[in-house]
Write a protein that binds this DNA or RNA. Structure first.
Lengths: 209, 209
DNA sequence: CACCTATTTGAACGGTGTCAAGATAATCTT
DNA sequence: AAGATTATCTTGACACCGTTCAAATAGGTG
């Protein structure tokens, strides 16, 4: 779309063969190896087996590469959330299933998750963040309406969805903190701890009636 | 304590005069000027008017400097929270007053706030994070018990406090997102938006009775 | 074939974190 | 008070980083 309209099948356009894709994969590999702060564009190029200047024909900037990585991450996250939302929801309710999947995704790909939100913070840089968020967001909103049994106003559903999103994001970033360790063992495990917190987070009716 | 036991009054020990303090101040200045990603140790030294190698006699690493900056930030945050917790709480309840102060602190010092949690994530690097968190954390817990009118178990109060902390942290990081803009104007302002979200976040009784 | 365009390389520039050695100034010992 | 000691700061250097630009290379087109 942007540059060469990469041929969709067996993409091996010129010298290397879909370097753009290879760079994205290399970036994710290096990312989870050395963490978000230690990642260098040169290391990504090294991992992909090309010269340090090669990436500049596929991404105008290091930032643009990171942006693409973040976008990929959001796509994967939404897949995981959709899977959790459509699974059978007998044990917990759907809302806390989604929240659990969210936190577990962040725990499984911590560096990628960090890059995702480092990108998302720069609004101008993510013009179509709406598109990505909306899918996850609407799932949460639907689950909230379902949990409230229809007796919730549109704006309250929206606020509750934002609250849930914020809380789960915070939990994703802080679930590893040392202060929570004793409580986790006390409750019998990581998952039980997360469910416990989520039970408090995802309340659907505001106080003050 | 660590090095020279800096004389408490008129601290101008050797050549420059309490360079450690000057470096911390310079770091905060540069931080809020160029953002957390763009901050360089050399720029901090430049701002303080010393050579690039000078900081290495007061901090073993760039990381150690950032850690000290983060610690300072947590101290300031706790001051702000304590002020909000002890103020008259007629308009909103104490819980949402604290949450509001938290988010506003993060909005006023965005780069410092980022450094704070970048440090806090590395648990090994913040051995006494407990000390700092506990003050803010116990305030939240007390406010939760107050809001629940005493009919809340210890573990539920703990979980609710964690939930509130996570949610407010998430809100602090995402309150600037573009998706929330229309809702903000619809609700009549930033503060009203924040109160609205916090009303959903800080519920004190979990579902499933 | 020659031509053109996209891709990749190589070398270079300024900036960065960090360290070793030397210079400088405050403190300690006598 | 004078010399020895120690802490502080500067200078210079190294490797690495992001980025650019001219040259080299290779696929597509006539």
């Amino acid at each position: 779309m942007t540059t060469t309209e990469t041929p969709l099948v067996d993409a091996k356009p010129y010298h290397h063969g879909d370097l753009r894709r290879a760079l994205l994969d290399a970036a994710e590999t290096v990312l989870e190896r050395v963490g978000p702060g230690g990642l260098s564009l040169r290391a990504v190029a090294r991992e992909a087996g090309v010269s340090p200047a090669a990436p500049y024909h596929h991404f105008k900037d290091k930032d643009e590469l990171m942006l693409a990585v973040g976008k990929m991450g959001f796509t994967k996250l939404n897949v995981a959330l959709a899977a959790a939302a459509t699974a059978r929801s007998d044990l917990g309710d759907r809302l806390s299933d989604i929240g659990l999947a969210y936190v577990e995704f962040a725990q499984d790909h911590p560096a990628t998750y960090r890059v995702m939100y480092d990108c998302a913070r720069r609004v101008d840089a993510m013009p179509d963040a709406d598109e990505h968020d909306k899918t996850g967001f609407s799932m949460v909103k639907d689950a909230i309406r379902e949990a409230a049994g229809g007796e919730i106003s549109e704006v309250d559903a929206h606020l509750a969805a934002i609250a849930a999103w914020c809380a789960v994001h915070g939990l994703a970033e802080m679930s590893g903190f040392a202060e929570f360790k004793t409580l986790k063992t006390e409750l019998g495990g990581e998952k039980e701890f997360l469910r416990g917190v989520l039970r408090h987070v995802m309340f659907t009716r505001p106080r003050h009636h």
